[in-house]
Simulated assay, not measured.
Amino acid sequence: MITTTESLARLCETLAREDFVTVDTEFMRETTYWPDLCLIQVAGETVNGLIDPLAPGLDLAPFFALMNDPAVLKVFHAARQDIEIMVHRAGIVPHPVFDTQIAAMVCGFGDQVGYESLVRRIAKSQIDKSSRFTDWSRRPLSDKQLAYALADVTHLRVIYESLKQELDRTGREHWLREEMDILTNPATYRTEPEDAWRRIRVRLRSKKQLGVLMEVAAWREREAREKNVPRSRVLKDDAVAEIAVQMPQAREALNQLRALPRGMATSRTGEAILKAVAAGLALDPKSLPQPDDGRDDMSEQAQAAAEVLKLALKVVCEQEGIAPKLVASSADIDAIAESDAADVHLMHGWRRELFGDLALAIKRGEAVIGFDKGRVRVMRKNSGLQAAAE
C-alpha cells in the first residue's frame, strides 16, 4: 500500500514511461452524495500499485498528473464512475481513455459485459469473489482484500491487449474512438440541479405540475450536495413525485401527503419545500416543455414500425458481432419509427453507417427481414436480396 506522497510520486514517475496503464478505484457512497474515494489500483507493464487515499498527509497530485498526461493511455473497465470521482476530487477528466466494457460491446461480448466475465473469457482466469462486498473505508485491509483489488488492474492489461487486437483486426477502432470522445468530454460530467427532475418517474398532466417537479427536484439536489448526503436522505423520489402532482401550497396540505415523513411539514424542510412549490407555480408555462403524462402517444403504425426495426437491429448486430444496446436505445428506435428526421445517436457517425440508413430503408420498403441460405438477414430489395451488411 502506498501511503506517502514521496512513494506515490516515484510510482507515477515509473508509470509515466509506460504506453498504457490500467486503473480502477474502490469507493463508498451509501451515506454520502459525493463518493468517498477509498482505494486506487494502477498497473503498468512492469509495476503495480495500490494507493491509499485515506492515508494521513498523502497528496494525490502525482496520480492526478498521471491521469492528465496525454502521452499515457488510461485503461478502465466501466470508467464512468471512476472518472466522475476524479472530476470531483481534482477537476480533471483523464485522457486519453480506453474503456474495456465499451470495447467489449463493440467486439461482440454482449451488453455491458462484466469484468469477471472478461477475465474468465479473455484472461482465462478466475477472480475470488469473496471480497466483493468489502467496506473499503476500513483499515487495515487484509492481504486477501488487497489481492482482490489488485486483480482488477492486472488482468485488465491482458483484456486491453486482446480487445485492441480485435479492434485493429475488424477496423472498428474508430467506432470506439467516438465513444471515448463522449467519455472524456467534460460536459458528460456536468450535472446541474435544474436537470435533476429528469431522473424522477412520475405521470404529470399539466405544466404547473412540471414546474413544481423541476423546482422541488432542484432544491433537493442542492440540499443533498451541500450536506453531502444521498438524495433520499433529503427527500425520497416518491415524495418529490407526490409533491409535484398535488402541488401543496400550505403546511396543512403538505402534511396530508402520504410519502412525506411525519412531522416534516412543520419543519424547516417543509418550509423549504413550500417555497420550492411556490417557485414552480410561478414559472412561465410557455418556458416549460410539454409534460410527459406517462401515456404512449405513438400511433399504431409507428409502434409496428418500431417492433420491426428492433428486430432488424438485433439481426444486424448478431451478424456484425456487436451489442445492440451500444448501437441504439429503444428510445432511438421509437424516434426513428415516428420520424425519418429524428435527431438521435443512431443517426450519427458509425451508428448511422451500421444501421441508421438501413432503418430508414426498411421504413421506405427498400429493405426487408428475410432468410438467406437458412439464416435470418436484413436484405435490400434492390441488391438482388443480398444481405444488407454484405
Rank of each mutant, 00 (worst) to 15 (best):
Q319T: 15
E30T: 14
E221K: 10
K207S: 05
W350N: 09
A239G: 09
V202T: 15
A305R: 15
R295E: 08
D82G: 04
Q112F: 00
R375N: 12
K227G: 02
A79Q: 02
E221Y: 09
A218N: 10
N185F: 05
I182Y: 12
L73A: 00
K208G: 11
G49P: 05
D168Y: 08
V245G: 03
C38F: 04
L210M: 09
P248N: 13
D52Q: 09
T154H: 03
P35V: 15
D52M: 07
E173M: 14
K363N: 09
L385V: 09
D52N: 14
S383R: 15
V47H: 09
T31A: 14
C317K: 08
I362M: 11
A304W: 05
R262I: 13
S162W: 08
S206N: 06
T154L: 03
A389S: 14
S137L: 06
T14E: 10
V327L: 05
L15E: 01
A90T: 07
V240Y: 01
V344T: 12
Q301E: 15
M1A: 08
Q41H: 04
P56F: 08
A187V: 13
T191Y: 12
I182L: 12
F63N: 04
R10P: 00
D296M: 12
P53V: 12
S7W: 01
V113T: 13
V308K: 15
T184Q: 10
Y33L: 09
L176H: 08
A361H: 11
T14S: 12
Q386Y: 07
K275S: 10
P94S: 07
R231Q: 08
L146W: 01
G356D: 06
D24R: 05
D357Q: 13
S339I: 03
A331M: 11
T170A: 10
E166V: 15
A61G: 11
D152Y: 05
L54G: 04
E252Y: 09
L118H: 01
A79I: 07
L183V: 07
K74Y: 02
P230N: 14
S162F: 11
S330E: 14
H77S: 02
K207T: 11
D69S: 02
N228E: 10
Y160H: 14
Y33D: 08
I122K: 06
I200N: 05
D297P: 00
A367S: 10
F371M: 15
E116N: 13
D135I: 09
I2Q: 04
R29F: 04
A244R: 11
S206V: 10
H155A: 03
K314S: 13
A147E: 13
R177D: 14
C38P: 01
A71P: 00
V119L: 02
A304N: 08
P324L: 13
I122S: 02
V368Q: 10
G321S: 07
E161H: 13
R377W: 01
M247Y: 05
F109S: 02
I51C: 03
A279K: 13
G263V: 11
D168A: 15
M247F: 03
E13I: 06
